[in-house]
Simulated scan of single mutants.
Amino acid sequence: MPDEPFETGRVFTPRVDRYSQITVRTNRYSVPVRLIGKRVRVVLHASHLVVYDQNVEVARHERLIAKAGCRLELDHYLEALIRKPGAFPGATALEQARSAGKFTPVHDAWWAQARKVHGERDGTRALIEVLLLARHIPHEHLVAGPATALRAGALTSDAVALEARKAAQTEDDSPAALTTGASGAATVTFLHEWRLAHLPPDTRPLPSVTPYDQLLRRRRASGGNHPEGEAQ
């Protein structure tokens, strides 16, 4: 065996088309939309392929064996879809994400309720903001976040992010402690409330208008104009 590892995959350098896809041996694979028009490097292995932008890995797919297939990653299209949320419901990438179990019934339920509250466009945009959180939060916690937020009627991405992080921090605790309050009803902490609760104490003195009152008394005693009139 060789002393140093060496690459055994076959290298291709396709150009990303306007649909944010590359073609490798008759099959198409998605890459992030920011790479449209650029040439990327693909290393094709027996069971998977890896896409690089220069030396940075930007995509990884299971290899398609049949010809003329298409494998799309929903995450690759989120920046484009958040600008055009009307294209989201019919997106092929969404259907593939459902089939792969990455877009769960919990996501669908949260999305449906968000559309009822915020409308089709804004509700869908809120869902896409939730999906973007997957770049920083593990999938299992990101599913727990919408589930808790949905039961509490919290239909914002901030609420989902906070609940997902709480689930990550307390994953060894009882699930009931994460989702129910003292009365047994689902509860959620909104992000702005959490920030206020964690602010340091404000030790500054309260503002005072005493100097201004003293100025008013002096001006009136001397028969001068009201200082507010002078300011105007």
Rank of each mutant, 00 (worst) to 15 (best):
T23S: 14
T23E: 14
R28N: 08
Y29Q: 05
S30P: 06
V33Y: 03
V33S: 15
R34N: 11
R34T: 11
L35N: 07
I36D: 11
K38E: 15
V42M: 08
V43D: 10
H45A: 12
A46C: 08
L49P: 09
V51S: 07
N55F: 04
V56Q: 14
V56M: 10
A59G: 05
H61C: 05
L64C: 06
I65R: 11
Y77T: 01
A80I: 00
K84P: 00
K84E: 06
P85T: 03
A87W: 03
G90R: 03
G90K: 01
T92E: 04
A93E: 01
A93S: 11
L94T: 00
Q96V: 02
R98V: 10
F103K: 00
P105M: 09
P105C: 12
W110I: 12
W110R: 07
W111K: 09
A112N: 10
R115W: 01
K116A: 15
V117W: 01
H118D: 13
G119H: 02
T124G: 14
T124A: 10
T124Y: 06
A126D: 11
I128C: 12
L131F: 04
L132I: 08
L133M: 14
A144E: 15
G145V: 08
A147I: 00
A152Q: 08
L155Y: 07
L155R: 01
T156C: 10
S157P: 15
A159Y: 03
V160D: 09
L162R: 15
